[in-house]
């Protein structure tokens, strides 16, 4: 039985109002919403794929490609914005060669924009897989990313 089938089975009388909980559960199990899952959910709930895609893209929480090994969350809340998080984000995007929401082709890094991470005292702040980096300037970015990349290389050795 597929992940989607399993999840849908847990809903009694699944219909269009169960769409969001189902999408959340699928993402929790698979890390992202795949094209195949959308089509499968559509068949089960009798909803067009375009509609499910529309609902899923409306919410920031859903992603359509797998996370990288390292998820770089960039806070774009008010305090971080005042402290220059826009420049920080574009530096990270440039260093990784992807834009926010994307994942590098080697599958190592993803960038995620967060409305407020709740650490305004550390602004501008980024978090990589839950590790916080405080008061980051754009010029710190290469060093931070290199650290994580090295950790991966050592891990594979």
């Amino acid at each position: 039985m597929s992940v989607v089938e399993n999840i849908i089975k847990q809903h009694s009388n699944p219909g269009r109002d169960s769409l969001i909980p189902i999408l959340q559960a699928v993402q929790e199990h698979e890390g992202f919403i795949s094209r195949e899952s959308v089509i499968e959910i559509g068949k089960a709930l009798d909803l067009p794929a375009s509609k499910i895609y529309g609902v899923a893209t409306f919410y920031n929480q859903f992603r359509f490609s797998p996370h990288g090994k390292w998820v770089v969350q960039v806070c774009r809340g008010t305090a971080c914005h005042v402290k220059g998080s826009a420049a920080l984000l574009s530096r990270i995007e440039r260093e990784l060669g992807i834009s926010a929401g994307g994942t590098t082709r080697d599958g190592l890094f993803s960038i995620e924009v967060v409305a407020c991470i709740g650490a305004c005292g550390l602004a501008p702040v980024i978090a990589v897989n839950g590790n916080f980096h405080a008061k980051v300037s754009p010029d710190d970015v290469p060093e931070i990313l290199r650290n994580y990349r090295n950790q991966t290389v050592e891990g594979t050795k």
């Binding site: 067009p48 794929a49 375009s50 895609y53 529309g54 919410y59």
Partner: peptide, 17 residues
């Protein structure tokens, strides 16, 4: 075949994916 995708100023009309 098409529906609204995205939100706010980034809303557009798209096919699935």
């Amino acid at each position: 075949a098409i529906d609204f995708a995205g939100r706010g100023s980034k809303t557009r009309i798209e096919t699935a994916f």
